[in-house]
Design a protein around this nucleic acid. Structure first.
Length: 411
DNA sequence: TCTGGGGTCCTAGGACCC
DNA sequence: TCTGGGGTCCTAGGACCC
């Protein structure tokens, strides 16, 4: 038998747990972590709050309605990214093959570490103990022959769970499992498959591939494999990731604005955030995408333009965004603005001569990317904005589930 | 004080070239 | 004058993930 052994590690209620660990007054209490200003949602809540019906994606007042004693904590990104980085360093004591899926989830391929540490279960218990000891938080771990199943397994027991799916048990576990439990099958796909009378992974795995391909194109084969619990995708370790394909920022304004000058100021600010990050990544891009959400929340549009040359200077990005804005007539006050740079080209950079130095550089850059993506840094654009119209802090939730605004479905 | 922000991948259709 | 195909690039939009 030649199979891989993959761990998926999921921090339980990560942001809320970090806050409770940092502040003893919050322990054992229902708390909710939110972004910086009024127009925000609950990004993570403690298990005490969840027991009272508080869910990710709720507005603060909704959370308070179902749990009046709910304590609201404004999130601190740096705390979370710092903790996340440290936790991933622990993982790398057990294998170099660590892939951070998000700020609070990672996969580890421990296939080649088993002989050193005895077993995957041993590794899992060691990791749990070290995370609890160092950070005072718990995690759920799934052990399985591939990433898809490991992630499925880590979801099965929370909090502080440990679930193993042995290769010989895969078919039994999947037989009556609802398809939407699989990572990659969302609400819409579930509905489509249900309409084909496919409800469980067992049914999906037995479905005729041609039937799935007719309906879903190239995804058909992948769907069938998922139903069978097949996933050959490798764990991509730090520094081995593909180059980033787009860099963007968007932000809901504190209040709706329709003053063109104010809109332009905000676009300049977004351009600076996108530009500085692109420069840090050493990329430039030819395509600029502008996104606008109107005051009514439901109507929005996005427009993109592709230039002849690659850019990453903030003023050039700003200019391109303005040129797009000039082609439209705004229909309502603006609630949210976003700018994304894509069609990226990686710029040549000086690489260290020695292999281990290169590896270190790549790993650092990879972690930088993760930190950037999850808002770990403070981007300064000082004098550009006169005070009040600024967006709030960005707290990127670890576990957005379709219970929130996405659930307001118009069908 | 209703409803966030960061991405990736896929599809469809049009323009344009050979 | 009318007819066709393949390939690439681009825009727009949707589904999915955290």
């Amino acid at each position: 038998m030649n199979h891989r052994t993959i761990l998926h590690i999921d921090m339980n209620a990560f942001f809320a747990s970090v806050e409770q660990s940092a502040n003893p007054d919050l322990r054992g209490k229902p708390i909710a972590v939110v972004g910086g200003h009024g127009r925000t949602v609950i990004t993570t809540s403690s298990y005490e709050a969840r027991a009272k019906g508080v869910k990710t994606g709720m507005a603060v007042w909704e959370g308070k309605r179902s749990c009046p004693e709910l304590i609201i904590v404004v999130g601190d990104n740096r705390k979370y990214t710092h903790t996340s980085t440290k936790i991933n360093e622990i993982f790398r004591d057990y294998t170099p093959e660590v892939e951070a899926f998000s700020i609070d989830e990672s996969w580890l391929d421990v296939t080649h570490s088993l002989s050193i540490f005895g077993s995957a279960v041993n590794i899992a218990y060691q990791i749990k103990a070290r995370i609890r000891h160092s950070f005072g938080i718990t995690c759920s771990i799934g052990i399985a022959p591939n990433k898809l199943l490991a992630k499925l397994a880590s979801d099965m027991q929370k909090p502080d769970g440990l679930t193993i799916i042995e290769p010989q048990d895969v078919a039994r576990v999947l037989e009556s499992l609802p398809i939407k439990e699989l990572c990659g099958i969302g609400r819409k796909m579930e509905r489509h498959l249900n309409l084909m009378s496919l409800y469980t992974c067992g049914e999906l795995g037995r479905c005729d591939e041609a039937r799935l391909t007719r309906r879903f194109g190239v995804s058909g084969r992948r769907l069938k494999e998922m139903g069978q619990g097949i996933d050959n995708s490798p764990v991509i370790q730090f520094g081995q990731e593909e180059d980033v394909k787009s860099v963007g920022h968007s932000s809901t304004l504190e209040r709706d604005i329709d003053d063109p000058a104010e809109i332009r100021r905000f676009l300049l600010r977004l351009s600076e955030m996108v530009g500085s990050r692109a420069r840090r990544y050493n990329v430039s891009g030819r395509t600029i995408h502008l996104y606008v959400r109107y005051a009514d929340f439901f109507s929005s549009w996005g427009k993109q333009t592709t230039l002849k040359k690659y850019i990453n200077q903030s003023d050039e990005i700003y200019k391109a965004a303005l040129s797009i804005l000039d082609t439209v007539e705004l229909e309502q006050p603006v609630r949210l603005l976003g700018i994304t740079l894509s069609n990226l080209k990686h710029q040549a950079e000086q690489l260290p001569l020695f292999e281990d130095e290169r590896k270190k550089l790549f790993a650092t850059q990879a972690m930088d990317k993760i930190n950037d993506r999850f808002g770990g840094r403070v981007v300064t654009y000082g004098s550009l904005l006169p005070g009040k119209a600024a967006a709030g802090n960005h707290v990127i939730p670890p576990s957005w589930r379709p219970d929130g605004i996405k659930n307001i479905d118009m069908e």
